[in-house]
């Protein structure tokens, strides 16, 4: 998996589960019309925004907003 997507999934997994996180992130990327392998750091805010609608169902609006912010600011160690 793309390191940025992997990082986003890792960040969400403790709350919503690894499979849910992975599917939610993949769905968000597909909605944006980009390949999962081609995701770059700059795509994270848009991915976060798309994932947020799913997170609202699982965690509520406040947690979804917080996680959206966190995903948008994720970093990957080189």
């Amino acid at each position: 998996m793309n390191p940025w997507l992997h990082r986003a999934v890792e960040h969400l997994a403790p709350r919503i589960g690894r499979v849910t996180a992975s599917n939610a992130v993949t769905l968000a990327v597909r909605k944006m019309g980009i390949a999962t392998d081609a995701v770059r750091r700059e795509d994270l805010p848009d991915i976060a925004r798309n994932v947020s609608t799913i997170l609202r169902v699982f965690l509520g609006s406040e947690a979804a907003a917080q996680l959206e912010e966190e995903i948008a600011g994720l970093e990957v160690e080189e």
């Binding site: 709350r15 919503i16 690894r18």
Partner: peptide, 9 residues
């Protein structure tokens, strides 16, 4: 089960 762990599951 299909959530794959996590607190919500």
């Amino acid at each position: 089960l299909q959530m794959g762990g996590g607190l919500v599951a």
